[in-house]
Design a protein around this nucleic acid. Structure first.
Length: 871
RNA sequence: GGGCCCGUAGCUCAACGGUAGAGCGCCGCCCUUACAAGGCGGAGGUCGCAGGAUCAACACCUGCCGGGCCCACCA
């Protein structure tokens, strides 16, 4: 796609992002630049997308994450890497099933009315109709993903990876089935892993109940129906005589033993604990140690199933009912009292989780977690920012076995078959067909496990399953390990740790070299965005209004490693203004014939202002490159923003106007202009792809900045002298401008004549100065003089009608006060530093210079005040 | 109950052992031939509090106050 170079003087004075972005993206897609070529000789650079949920839509957090990833990928592509950004989506097990069930609910039917096959069919339909919205929206943002490699966690290839992984881990004893206490959501009707449970401190009531001679306390009265013991600490003298005896369990007519167990804290409450092995993980462990029965009294819907008067009540109806019954019997010792305690909630639907004994599949995490921890400890994978390492280690070092079976219909069905004798058959390899006969006894009529796998099981394989694993594909060889993972710190455990576990288990190397953990997007007051706060924003609305580049710049600019990012529409407006500034500045360059075809003159051949901007440019190139490499996107943006706006636009373009008007000087200045804009646009491209593409094509006539070379700093253009000269010029101009402002000299009025301070080094600069400061003429004078006062004294110009002498005296007095303060500060510091003689020489010198400057200022101010007095 | 982070200009946030920065907001002046989505000038901070080590701290250490986050099977 070759963009026809537009008429150079045909650019409107405002940038309209909406006008160009869609076409540009379509052109990029057609060009094939997004595709990664396995056969290329370039070094590989790869990132797999953190797959968004199929049922979601692009929110501001995605926009943030995608901006960072795209910036990384685009820069690497320009820098000569074969860059791959692999897109895709996650089937989002519970989440997606819930969404579809809700839709069915509006039709008045449940998934059970449909049956499993029909329900799963519906989910696929839903996915086809609504899924992938995010991936389509990504085009709006400009994400340069390789669409030819798009994957889905339920597609055939990934299903094969899941089945292979399960088979291998089962064979290795890393996946097993067991009856355990698991977290159960009575609403979603499925088991959950530990991290799918959110704990919150909820108000409960601690009720003390008399069990014969003992008193126990509980927040969950209803579980007492399933108690099979009371436990006390073995060393607790108060109860030593009761150990081994039995007490009566109220309301049930059952007698239960008193057991001694170390898990009991004798200092808590009465030191006696009721034990409900089927409904509490602690109690289950106690039960195991003492061979207690494990009767379940609450079913999967949270309903009491113990026979008796409470049977059929919901757990929350049963609680007060049982309490009342106990009170009637006089068994409530103390009145119930409010008690704040941690309660687990389902992270999908917020229902209070019910610990429940059931038979589930688990991953034995110990060896995997160790490998995942080691990979970070020994530096094969690096976490950014490093503070996140502690969090990561705390998790992998203390992980419990992972419950991976879910009682859902949407997901990867567990690849396990049972015969009527209950033997388990697991196909060892993904390419084996579903087994027809039992591997143990040879019976046929096998039945597949009804459950599906935790959605994070398949996500955990993402970095290599998407590249073709278990097949040994070229993609896998070329792009694994992936170079970086860019993801929010909120899913370190859900996802990052799991990928590390699976990756180090199944492949010879880690899944990624760098992990960049970004923060959450917040509103302008630093508040977390949530629907209930009403502060969520639709990123695409901002894209519509201000353009994708403005949104991207805003997000990238706010990115500090690991930090949260506040955004507001005003920030985006500011970024939009920046795109417009770039637009107009480039337009100025184009109108003035900026050229990228003329060779850039060597430093000696240039005017100081050009030496200066090129010197600054090469510094900026080096800095920005380093910031990109360190994932310091905030600084990338900050540096480029200031260079472009404050230095290039506010000073260089103004300074360039004079040489551009001079036929002898213009060609060189045009070459410098062309070069500076060319480099600037390339540096900005990873963050602001659209506006830079538009402008870069106009400027250079090139095909696409996407595939332009990444700039490299050229230290031969470093020019200290020019930087100092321009700094001095800026000081003087600012002083004159300040004078004008103080003296209320109209901007349109030209001061009749004035002398300027500073060692302004050459005639062109004096002319520039006259222009920038609105002077009729200017001459050099010793530095440091208030311009007009100097003019009066030195040139004899009579400004008495123009100058407000009192205002000028006030200004000088103020300057003098500042100089006095500065002299004192520098002097104190110098005395201090010299006294002990430990300060580095550089510091002493610098401080001496400060002191000298302050003293010189004071002398000049005194002279000027004296001159004014004689006026 | 453990662990982590943060308290810097009105707001949101940077920086850093050696003279406090940005964006937005605010005040004043300007439609100056790239840009009013702009230009120029300016105001505004005892860097949460109290100690300590250092020639020198906003920056390092300790304690306190205030705010946030993560992990957690004490009934």
């Amino acid at each position: 796609m070759t963009a026809p170079p537009a008429e150079r003087n045909d650019l409107p004075s405002q940038y309209d992002a909406g006008l160009v972005e869609a076409d540009i993206y379509a052109g990029w897609e057609r060009s094939g630049y997004f595709l990664a070529d396995v056969a290329s000789r370039k070094p590989a650079y790869s990132i797999v997308i953190p797959p968004p949920n199929v049922n979601g839509s692009l929110h501001i957090g995605h926009a943030f994450e995608h901006t960072l990833i795209d910036a990384i990928i685009r820069r690497k592509r320009m820098a000569g890497f074969e860059a791959l950004w692999l897109p895709g989506m996650d089937h989002a097990g519970i989440s997606m099933q819930n969404v579809v069930e809700r839709h069915l609910g509006t039709e008045g039917i449940s998934r059970h009315d449909l049956g499993r096959a029909a329900f799963v069919e519906r989910v696929w339909e839903y996915k086809a109709n609504y899924g992938g919205a995010i991936l389509r929206q990504m085009r709006r943002l400009g994400s340069s993903v390789d669409w030819s490699r798009e994957r889905f966690t339920m597609d055939a290839g990934l299903s094969r990876a899941v089945r292979t992984m399960f088979g291998r881990m089962y064979a290795d004893g890393l996946i097993y089935r067991a009856e355990r206490i698991i977290n159960w959501c009575p609403r979603c009707m499925t088991a959950l892993s530990d991290i799918e449970v959110e704990h919150s401190d909820d108000e409960g009531e601690l009720v003390s109940i008399r069990y014969g001679p003992l008193t126990v306390a509980t927040t969950r009265v209803e579980t007492m129906l399933g108690d099979t013991a009371v436990a006390v600490h073995p060393d607790d003298e108060r109860y030593a005589h009761l150990i081994g005896t039995e007490v009566e369990l109220p309301l049930t007519g059952r007698r239960i033993p008193v057991v001694a167990d170390d898990a009991v804290d004798p200092a808590f409450g009465t030191g006696a604990v009721k034990v409900t092995p089927a409904h509490d993980p602690n109690d289950f462990a106690i039960g195991q140690r003492h061979g207690l029965a494990t009767p379940s009294v609450i079913n999967e819907r949270g309903v009491i199933i113990a026979s008796g008067p409470f049977q059929g009540l919901d757990r929350y109806e049963a609680r007060p009912a049982i309490t009342a019954a106990l009170r009637e019997l006089g068994l409530i010792v103390a009145e119930k009292r409010p008690y704040l305690h941690a309660v687990g909630h389902c992270d999908r639907c917020k229902t209070v989780v019910e610990p429940r004994l059931s038979k589930q599949w688990f991953v034995a995490v110990a060896p995997l977690a160790k490998a995942a921890g080691d990979a970070v400890r020994d530096g094969r994978t690096t976490l950014h920012p490093p503070e996140m390492r502690d969090r990561y280690f705390a998790w992998v070092d203390n992980m419990h076995d992972w419950c991976i079976s879910r009682q859902l219909w949407w997901g990867h069905r567990i690849p396990v078959w049972y015969c009527s004798d209950g033997h388990v058959t697991v196909p060892g390899d993904a390419d084996q067909p579903d087994p027809l006969t039992c591997g143990t006894c040879g019976l046929d009529g096998l039945r597949q496990d009804d459950d599906v796998l935790d959605t994070w099981f398949s996500s955990g394989l993402w970095p290599f399953s998407t590249l073709g694993w278990p097949a040994e594909t070229e993609d896998l060889a070329r792009f694994y390990p992936t170079s970086a993972l860019v993801v929010g710190y909120d899913i370190i455990f859900f996802w990052v740790a799991r990928m590390m576990m699976f990756g180090t288990y199944a492949l010879p190397d880690v899944p990624f070299r760098d992990v960049l953990l970004h923060g959450l997007v917040r509103d302008s007051r630093g508040k977390k965005m949530s629907k209930s706060w009403g502060n969520v924003v639709d990123p695409l609305e901002w894209v519509d209004r201000y353009g994708a580049d403005a949104l991207r710049f805003t997000l990238a600019r706010g990115a500090n490693p690991g930090g949260d990012v506040p955004v507001s529409e005003e920030w985006v407006q500011g970024a939009r203004n920046f795109t417009n500034k770039l637009w107009n500045a480039t337009r100025f360059a184009l109108l003035n014939g900026a050229s990228t075809t003329e060779p850039l003159p060597a430093p000696e051949e240039l005017d100081p202002e050009s030496d200066w901007i090129l010197s600054r440019l090469q510094t900026v190139v080096a800095e920005v490159d380093g910031y990109y490499e360190a994932y310091e996107f905030g600084r990338v943006c900050e540096t480029l923003f200031h260079f472009a706006w404050d230095e290039l636009c506010d000073w260089y373009l103004e300074l360039a106007k004079l040489p551009l008007a001079n036929p002898d000087l213009a060609p060189r200045t045009r070459a410098v202009l062309g070069h500076v804009f060319d480099v600037l646009l390339r540096l900005l491209h990873p963050v602001m792809p659209f506006v830079t593409e538009t402008l870069w094509r106009q400027l250079t006539g090139g095909e696409s900045v996407m595939v332009a070379e990444w700039p490299v700093a050229d230290p031969s253009y470093a020019h200290r002298g020019a930087e100092e000269a321009i700094a001095e010029l800026q000081d003087v101009v600012t002083a004159v401008r300040r004078f004008r402002s103080d003296q209320r000299v109209k901007p349109s009025a030209t001061l009749p004549a004035v002398a300027v301070g500073g060692s302004v080094p050459f005639p062109a600069q004096v002319a520039a100065l006259a222009r920038l400061a609105g002077l009729g003429s200017a001459e050099q004078l010793p530095p440091g003089w208030s311009p007009v006062v100097a003019g009066r004294v030195s040139l004899g110009v009579d400004l008495s009608g123009v100058i407000d002498l009192a205002a000028e005296r006030a200004r000088l007095a103020k300057d003098r006060a500042a100089a006095v303060k500065e002299r004192e500060s520098a002097s104190a510091k110098l005395t201090n530093a010299q006294f002990v003689g430990k300060a580095p020489a550089a510091v002493i010198d610098k401080t001496k210079a400060r002191l000298g400057a302050a003293e010189a200022d004071l002398a000049r101010i005194a002279d000027q005040l004296a001159a004014l007095r004689s006026e």
